[in-house]
Structures are given as structure tokens and as C-alpha cells.
Design a protein around this nucleic acid. Structure first.
Lengths: 114, 114
DNA sequence: TTGACATGCAACCATACGGTTGCCTATTAT
DNA sequence: ATAATAGGCAACCGTATGGTTGCATGTCAA
């Protein structure tokens, strides 16, 4: 998971995924067309994505074809994001309630959250 | 979105969110108990989370209370992750099909991965 | 009032990261 | 056979990042 989060943290890498999302199985050179940086830089990004298992590479002669693997992205959602989703409405209510509680002057400590 | 992705990229920050998820409205000192690093380091992480709008801060006297805001996380899913989810099964099929296709063409120069 | 407590501010440091350049290798087309 | 094409490897560089320490400030309790 760590690698996936890290991989997704960069705009260029998300771009690459989006490009592959549009049309899978692209070559390195093809992908370079979508980012204004050197081929080497793109290679590095792709390597990171590969290590995070977000893309799979298949060699075809001298060409390196890149395929998107959406599974890790799904896992990120499944094992981390989804719980926040479920919690969402509830949490906002909490904040408001606690803000209300704060208005009561000194007396007991104002700390008590939830 | 950029700030949110960046914020989520760090393990310590995800930890902080998880801790707040467990019990909302914690103080800085309280949160420090969950990460083995200096208070200042934690402050920096919290600042980043705050700037990404992932937490909201409420002062109560000399204490700074931190509240989780799950909305940006939900947006990340909604505007980015969800599309990969929908695409998921389909994309895997593509990879396999393309791999099959590669076995045929002229020189039969195979890539060979997976 | 005074001290302890909760936090902020700023300087500093090592390392990770995104990017570049130069050169080398392997495949393919002519 | 040769040249063009697709890509890899490695060194280098500036800046961002995660972390530290020292000191300052505001609030609460005795």
C-alpha cells in the first residue's frame, strides 16, 4: 500500500495512469508524448508505477508496452478509503456538536470530544 | 486534489488520520503519543493535513483540537479512483487479450511476461 | 504572581525526489 | 552491413521533505 500511495502522490504519474486508462498497452516513447520532460524522467516514473504494481510491462521486440493494472487502486479504496466514506456524514456532525459544546464557559474542561 | 494526494502519501499522516478516525477532537500532545517523533515533526504533519483540508482545527484555550474531515478523501475517490474501479475487470481482460495477440504476429517475437 | 503546560516559530540537517545529460545496447528497416 | 529506432544505465543536480533542536509565547492552576 505504501508504494501505491507514494506512486499516486505525483501528478505526472497520475497522468500516465490516466493516459493508459484511455488506451492501454502504450510504448515508452508514446507515453513521453504526454509529459514535457526527458524520456529518462518518464522511465523513472514508469518504474515507480511498475514497482507499485500499478502497471505491467510486456516487451515486444524493442518496444516496451505498458499496461494499466487498476487492482492496487481498488485495494487502496477497499482497505483504507472506504472506511472514511462510511464514516463521512457522522464525522461532520461530531464537529458541529463539539463546536456547540465549546460555547459553554469555564466550569468543566472544554476538552471532551466524543 | 494535489494537496490531498501528497498528504496521504506519508505513512505518519495516514496514521494521524486513522487515530482521529478512532476518536475525534484530539489535542496535539495527545496525537504525539501515537508517533515516535518530536512534537514539532507532528505539528508539521498536522499542518500539511490541515492545508489539504483533511483536518479542521479548533482552539480551546491553550489546547488545539483536531477534527477529521473525510470529505477530501471522498472526493479523491469520486473524481479519480472510482473510474478505475469501474474499469477494473475490463482492463485486466485487455491485458490478457493483448498478450494473446502478441503470440501470433509475423516474426512471432514474443514479449513474455506475467 | 509565578510556574508549569500546550503550542508556535525559526534555523538547521540529511536524505529522497524529480529531473537532466551523456553514453551504451539491442532490435529493426533499408 | 549499416543506420535509425527504442530503450537502459549511471552520474549528477537543485529542491522538497521529514526530522531535529532551541527558544518564545500564551494560558491555566496554585
Amino acid at each position: 500500500m505504501e508504494a501505491v500511495f507514494k506512486a499516486l502522490a505525483d501528478k505526472s504519474r497520475r497522468r500516465l495512469l490516466d493516459v493508459l486508462f484511455g488506451k492501454n498497452g502504450r510504448t515508452l516513447n508514446e507515453l513521453c508524448g504526454y509529459l514535457s520532460m526527458s524520456r529518462q524522467a518518464v522511465t523513472k516514473h514508469l518504474l515507480l508505477l511498475e514497482r507499485a504494481n500499478l502497471i505491467t510491462v510486456v516487451w515486444s521486440g524493442r518496444e516496451k508496452l505498458h499496461y494499466l493494472n487498476p487492482v492496487p487502486i481498488h485495494q487502496i479504496y477497499d482497505r483504507w478509503i472506504s472506511k472514511y466514506d462510511r464514516h463521512r456524514i457522522e464525522a461532520l456532525g461530531e464537529l458541529k456538536n463539539n463546536l456547540e459544546a465549546k460555547r459553554k464557559p469555564k466550569g468543566a474542561r472544554t476538552g471532551g470530544a466524543v
